[in-house]
Each structure stands twice: as structure tokens, then as C-alpha cells.
Measured scan of single mutants.
Amino acid sequence: NQASVVANQLIPIQTALTLVMMRSEVVTPVGIPAEDIPRLVSMQVNRAVPLGTTLMPDMVKGYA
């Protein structure tokens, strides 16, 4: 099973992502693949992302 990127904390809207905000976890449905974590650093979320939420491509500006 492929690991996805999951929020390690509440990430407020417009926040630039850092490594400490994300973790990898095998979840359903599958979100952004964990191997993309380095690419996500400094990208902004376009909505508030609660703790434990799987990051989906449409939540990160410039990802999809």
C-alpha cells in the first residue's frame, strides 16, 4: 500500500508547508504520495487542513 501525505498539525489557510507539518501514512482514500513531501515544502495550502487530514492535490497551490 502506498503512503500518502497527512497533516501532522492544523495547517492554517495560506500557510507555506514545512517538513514538520507533514507525515506519511497509509490511508484511504489515497492522497498526495509521500515521496512528494520534498516537493511540497514551501508550497501553500489553499484551505485550512485539520490534524490527521490527508493532503489531496487540490489542497496545495501549484501542486496539481
Rank of each mutant, 00 (worst) to 15 (best):
V26Q: 10
E25N: 08
L51R: 12
T15E: 08
V26M: 13
I11T: 00
P29I: 05
A3R: 11
E25Y: 07
T15I: 07
T53F: 11
M22V: 08
L10I: 11
V60D: 02
V45A: 04
N1H: 15
P50F: 08
V30M: 12
P50N: 10
E25K: 14
V6A: 03
T18A: 10
T53G: 11
I13R: 12
I13M: 12
A34M: 06
V5P: 02
L10N: 14
Y63T: 03
V45C: 06
L17G: 00
T54F: 02
A64P: 10
I32W: 02
A48D: 15
I32C: 04
N1K: 12
V20G: 14
V5E: 01
E25D: 11
N8T: 10
Q44L: 12
M22K: 00
Q2Y: 10
T15C: 06
L40C: 04
A7W: 03
R39E: 08
I11F: 03
S42P: 01
M59S: 05
S24H: 08
Q2R: 14
T54A: 06
V27F: 03
Q9V: 11
N8K: 10
A34H: 06
L55F: 08
V41A: 05
M56W: 05
Q2G: 11
P38Y: 11
L17I: 10
L55A: 01
L51I: 13
L51D: 15
L40T: 00
A34F: 06
L17W: 03
L40F: 01
M43Q: 08
R23C: 06
V26K: 09
V20N: 12
T28A: 11
P29T: 05
T15Y: 06
Q44G: 03
V49A: 04
R39C: 06
A34R: 05
R23Y: 06
N46W: 09
V60C: 03
V49I: 11
L10R: 13
V41L: 13
T28G: 06
S4Q: 00
M21P: 02
V30P: 15
P38N: 13
A48G: 07
M59E: 00
P38D: 09
T54G: 01
D58F: 11
M56D: 04
V27W: 03
I11Q: 00
L17T: 00
A64R: 05
D36G: 05
I13K: 15
V41T: 05
Q2L: 13
T53C: 08
A7F: 03
V49Q: 03
Q14A: 15
A64Q: 15
G62K: 06
A3M: 11
I37L: 11
R39T: 10
Q44A: 09
R23K: 10
I32D: 00
L51E: 13
V41G: 01
M21N: 07
G62H: 09
E35K: 15
P38C: 08
Y63A: 03
M22C: 04
A34T: 07
A64H: 11
A16P: 15
A7C: 04
N46H: 08
L55C: 03
G31T: 01
V27P: 00
Q14H: 15
Q2I: 10
S24L: 07
E25M: 11
L10T: 12
V5T: 05
L40G: 03
T54W: 03
P12H: 08
E25F: 06
S42Q: 15
A7Q: 02
I37P: 01
D58H: 10
M21L: 05
P57N: 05
A16E: 11
E35F: 15
A48C: 08
T53S: 10
P38H: 13
G31C: 03
V6K: 03
V5C: 06
S24K: 13
V26I: 14
M59P: 00
P57H: 07
N1W: 13
L17N: 01
A16S: 14
K61H: 14
P57Q: 06
I13Y: 14
G62S: 07
D58T: 09
L55T: 00
T28L: 11
